[in-house]
């Protein structure tokens, strides 16, 4: 474990908690893309299948449980508990254009042609594009609540920090996973536009508004 990975995990966890609290406290999922949250639930499910078979550490197992449980809870709140506030008209990104190519790619490019490894690879590829429906929805509505932009910032920073974690691990642990690194780069690049707006607008107290 290194500081970059730890801060990355904390950033990821806080993003998940911010979103859960935003929906639960405001009893509304306005401006939140249910499709992205569905994709995240798929990402965690396909990535943590080894949750019961491969014990790494208490930290690793407990974080995995929290991630899976909170992603399902978020999907449940959006599509069931507060579905009256779900803005389906603006959450129109075609997720099949994300799921099918990443599924095919995970069969073609992976470290080992075994079910668990292919599912892990699929989850890595899917995670790199899972935020697109949410970013698409923000651009369609032309704006995002400030709390939603904090959620997006924390979520984007987590994988950026993981990039530094992989540099660190390559340097000091001879650890190198090209699939995770390339997908992590793609994921981080997708946030660049948002990062720019967040830093130039939200941090100055303005509302996040995208040119629609």
């Amino acid at each position: 474990m290194n500081i970059f990975r730890f801060l990355g995990d904390i950033s990821h966890l806080s993003a998940i908690i911010i979103l859960l609290l935003k929906i639960w406290k405001s009893r509304s999922c306005a401006g939140i893309s249910g499709k992205s949250q569905l994709l995240f639930a798929i990402v965690f499910t396909t990535r943590y299948l080894d949750l019961f078979t491969n014990f790494i550490s208490f930290y690793n197992t407990s974080m995995k449980v929290v991630y899976v449980a909170s992603s399902y809870a978020t999907v449940w709140m959006i599509y069931s508990k507060f579905k009256a506030t779900y803005d389906g008209n603006h959450d129109t990104f075609r997720v099949e254009f994300l799921i099918v190519p990443t599924a095919i790619l995970s069969f073609l490019v992976n470290h080992d042609f075994t079910p668990l490894e292919i599912l892990w690879t699929f989850s890595i590829y899917l995670e790199s594009v899972a935020i697109l429906p949410q970013l698409f929805m923000v651009s369609k509505t032309g704006e995002a609540e400030t709390i939603t932009s904090h959620y997006l910032f924390a979520l984007g920073i987590y994988r950026t920090l993981y990039l530094f974690n992989w540099i660190w691990r390559y340097q000091f642990e001879e650890f190198f996973d090209l699939i995770a690194i390339v997908a992590g780069l793609v994921q981080t690049v997708l946030y660049c536009d948002f990062f720019y707006l967040y830093i130039t607008k939200v941090l100055k107290g303005k509302k996040l508004s995208l040119p629609a």
């Binding site: 990975r5 990821h12 080894d50 790494i56 080992d112 993981y162």
Partner: peptide
């Protein structure tokens, strides 16, 4: 095939 990197990350 080359060694699969260990899966100790979240």
């Amino acid at each position: 095939d080359e060694e699969t990197p260990q899966k100790d990350e979240l």
